[in-house]
């Protein structure tokens, strides 16, 4: 999982995708940003594509960018056939924010049955989970995990990791934003969003070694309220978990560890 914390360039984002795929033993992972927001100027060349180390694909085109573990051939075929216009995962995700299990989508029409068969031939699994990511300033992205497996295996994967996938979706998006922003901020993981006093207090108390219960008592708030504040801080710091958030906060001087 260390790769999730690494500094991405665009091929690097492809490596992150591969690392997630391997960590969760799924067949494919893909991230596709439709918009990185108005305040994320693109500093590198506007169009390009290439391969990940493991044969997956990264692409950037205008304001969109993506990294996929899908094969180069499948991406090519998908774009050639303009499957993005009919793919129910895409049409169902655009503008949305609730996660989507592919099994809940309607694949019954003849063209979609053909699309699905073709996808299977290119190694796409029968099960998928897509998290639409909505950020500030019109940011929008889609993150998908995909696996060929039985219904029971899929249900057990989602039961264990559904929250992880949601968190990782947003984290990958933040990494992509950092990539699109600039080199300085890349070092710290993402463009800095300021923390309120309460969020700094919450992170600081955890950094001092307090438990959630102790820290919430100290702040005079309920433990659930504390969880909300610290999770908000975690998200703004671009961290995947609380220890990571504490490390980033200390590194940036947001808190001063005792």
């Amino acid at each position: 999982m260390e790769k999730l914390f690494s500094t991405p360039d665009l091929p690097g984002l492809g490596e992150v995708i591969d690392a997630i795929r391997d960590a969760y033993s799924v067949d494919h992972v893909c991230y596709h940003a439709i918009s990185l927001g108005l305040d994320a100027p693109v500093l590198c060349e506007s169009i390009g594509s290439g391969m990940n180390d493991s044969g997956g694909v990264w692409r950037r085109e205008g304001r969109q960018l993506g990294a996929f573990s899908y094969s180069h051939e499948w991406i090519g075929r998908y774009l050639e056939a303009r499957y993005d216009l009919v793919d129910p995962v895409v049409t169902g995700s655009l503008g949305a924010f609730a996660a989507i299990d592919w099994a809940d989508l309607d694949w019954s029409s003849a063209p979609l049955k053909r699309f699905m068969h073709e996808a299977t031939d290119f190694g796409i699994g029968n099960h998928g989970f897509t998290v639409p990511v909505r950020g500030p300033n019109g940011q929008f992205a889609m993150f998908t995990v995909n696996k060929a497996c039985s219904q029971s295996e899929w249900e057990s994967l989602l039961a264990s990791h559904r929250s992880d996938f949601t968190m990782i979706a947003h984290h990958v998006h933040q990494q992509a934003l950092a990539f699109a922003a600039n080199g300085e901020q890349l070092m710290a993981g993402m463009p800095l969003r300021s923390l309120s006093a309460r969020e700094r207090d919450a992170i600081g108390l955890i950094a001092d070694g307090m438990s959630r219960g102790q820290a919430s008592d100290k702040l005079g708030i309920s433990e659930n309220t504390f969880r909300v504040y610290i999770d908000s801080a975690r998200h703004k710091l671009g961290a995947l978990n609380i220890p990571h958030a504490v490390a980033i906060a200390a590194y940036r001087g947001v808190i001063t560890p005792q």
Binding site: V133, T166, M167, A169, H170, R193, S196, A197, R198, E199, I221, T225, V228, Y229, D231, S232, R234, H235, K236
Partner: peptide, 8 residues
């Protein structure tokens, strides 16, 4: 608490 709550 002055927090602009933001989390997935």
């Amino acid at each position: 608490g002055g927090v602009a709550v933001s989390s997935p």
